[in-house]
């Protein structure tokens, strides 16, 4: 075993200090939510709404309504748009406390939930129970990555726990299939109060691609009360880290009115 220890020591520190300013988040080149530039939108075009597989973009009052809570980051709209109004971006740190902050809006004043001051100032560590309610396993792959040496979730005092009884946060992936509905509810019921719920991935936020078909619900909508939303398909590990630290009031929410830096 000396071999492994030696090697471990030699390879030094691999961990990123993200989300500290200027830190390497490890997501070089990763595409995020398409950025909506209404000023560039051509009247009557509607190409993006026609291709969007999850109706994240819809025509409303002659203009567009863009709901990033439904976006699966497929980039079809950015390819269909003739004028750059739907533009590829690297905006993926999309964790929010209030669902309405995922909907594009000119009015970027904070929603009440986003400003809650009686934050659950966690002075102890955070324990998470994960439930896969029918994911494609992309979201699990990124959740598992959180424990690799690059993200090293433990260093932040955040742990996954096998038992709902010791969990503070229920982290759900997937659109909630028919067969997972009951087990998911039971896991929630088994948690002690106070308890919180996080929807990770667009499937859990709003159903994603299979949402609402014969086998699936539309994510946690109408199933459990959600305290933290993180759309993405899948959200990358740095986005998940950022959202968890935001939940703990250790880093600010980056998105308001569907825009980063709002």
């Amino acid at each position: 075993m000396a071999l492994w220890t030696l090697f471990g020591l030699m390879s030094g520190k691999a961990t990123t200090p993200w989300p500290k300013d200027g830190a390497n988040d490890g997501q070089d080149g990763v595409l995020g939510m398409p950025r909506y530039n209404p000023a560039l939108c051509q009247e009557g075009c509607e190409e993006c709404a026609a291709v969007c597989p999850t109706h994240a973009i819809q025509i409303q009052d002659g203009g567009l309504s863009v709901d990033y809570g439904r976006c699966v980051v497929c980039q079809l709209c950015t390819e269909a748009c003739p004028s750059g109004a739907m533009e590829p971006s690297h905006d993926w740190a999309f964790g929010v406390r209030d669902r309405t902050d995922l909907v594009w809006s000119n009015d970027r004043t904070s929603h009440p939930a986003a400003d809650r001051t009686e934050r659950r100032a966690f002075r102890r560590s955070l324990h998470i129970r994960h439930v896969d309610a029918g994911s494609c396993n992309g979201c699990e792959s990124e959740l598992q990555a959180l424990n690799n040496p690059f993200y090293n979730l433990h260093r932040l005092g955040i742990f996954f726990t096998p038992s709902p009884r010791f969990a503070d946060l229920l982290l759900v992936t997937g659109p909630v299939t028919r067969a997972m509905f009951e087990p998911l509810r039971s896991a929630y019921e088994a948690m002690p109060e106070p308890r919180w719920v996080m929807a990770v991935g667009t499937c859990a936020v709003s159903g994603g691609i299979p949402g609402g078909n014969y086998a699936c619900g539309t994510g946690l909508e109408g199933v459990l009360p959600v305290d933290l939303y993180l759309p993405g398909c899948p959200p990358n590990p740095s986005a998940i880290l950022q959202a968890l630290l935001m939940f703990l009031d250790r880093t600010p929410q980056r998105v308001r009115g569907g825009q980063i830096g709002g």
Partner: peptide, 18 residues
């Protein structure tokens, strides 16, 4: 099959490219 999402049915009626 707890995770059965009816993925095959999602294709029906869709454009082959998208």
């Amino acid at each position: 099959f707890f995770k059965h999402r009816g993925m095959e049915s999602c294709f029906q009626g869709q454009r082959p490219d998208h």
